[in-house]
Write a protein that binds this DNA or RNA. Structure first.
Lengths: 139, 139
DNA sequence: GAGTAAATCGTAGTCATTCCGAATTGGAAA
DNA sequence: TTTCCAATTCGGAATGACTACGATTTACTC
């Protein structure tokens, strides 16, 4: 997903186009990795010094609800990244040093569904953590 | 893992046997599902009304570090359960209503390792969320 | 039974997140 | 363009999970 498609989505759902929303989405498009609300505030501190935390949190949550962003919970924080739309369902490798992510195609949910026929399955989480090649050679 | 083995483990690692630790481990053995620190405090409120939160958090963390407990992060909270030792490596289905867990044998990490040969993989998380058969029929 | 390090208590502090009332603003309608 | 109003933002206070810490108590050793 890119900035323009995200803004279109906002408009079509009746959301207003505000400088805050533009800045947040432009940042996430540029970074292409998981950022916390705090990361977003820091990154926008120069450009938008008086954007309140309420604004950051509220918008990140809204964007996540409407699938503009992907969200995870990591190290006690909610983190957000631009929604990947190259493939359909996917998971991520996440570099714990730089935050870089790598899409994974494998997902074992079919096997799980077969193994738990009498359970209702609503959601699942599969994430792999480690060090990306760049950080490995740099370290 | 059961209470007695857990207490042995504590002793062998130089930890003292205290009423708090006994109560926490007995509770987790009995419940056999993920509990938050708050859940533990509430459950022990009658029996140990003055157990401080410091004690609960510190012990849960210690137990998790020494693999007496398994830990996950769910809904913005750290949650703990007695370590399953029936199988080796495994993951869990977690019922979002009652907290019941079901062990899963499937794990796609071999495929992931092959797909990311130049990445260092330190950890991973795979969890399935939904409704267990009991809660489904009850609802 | 005495001594000591570990454990606990009570409380205050931190940090991410949410809430709320007042002020501002985007965008539709006049 | 101007008006208008609900949506949005601001600023700051409140919440809730978790951590830190000095003072007190306690489990275990000798």
């Amino acid at each position: 997903m890119n900035f323009d498609i995200a803004m279109e989505r906002l408009k079509s759902e009746g959301f207003k186009r505000t400088p805050s929303r533009e800045a947040i989405l432009r940042l996430l498009e540029r970074e292409d990795r998981y950022l916390s609300a705090g990361d977003v505030r820091k990154a926008l501190a120069d450009e938008h010094p008086k954007m309140s935390q309420d604004t950051v949190y509220r918008n990140l949550s809204s964007f996540s609800e409407m699938k503009i962003l992907e969200e995870t919970e990591l190290g006690g924080e909610r983190k957000f990244r631009m929604h990947c739309d190259r493939h359909g369902h996917h998971h991520h490798f996440i570099c714990m040093e730089c935050g870089r992510t790598e899409e994974l195609d494998v997902c074992p949910m079919e096997q799980v569904s077969r193994a738990l026929p009498s359970f209702v399955i609503d959601d699942h989480k599969f994430e792999v953590y480690g060090q990306c090649p760049d950080c490995r050679t740099a370290g």
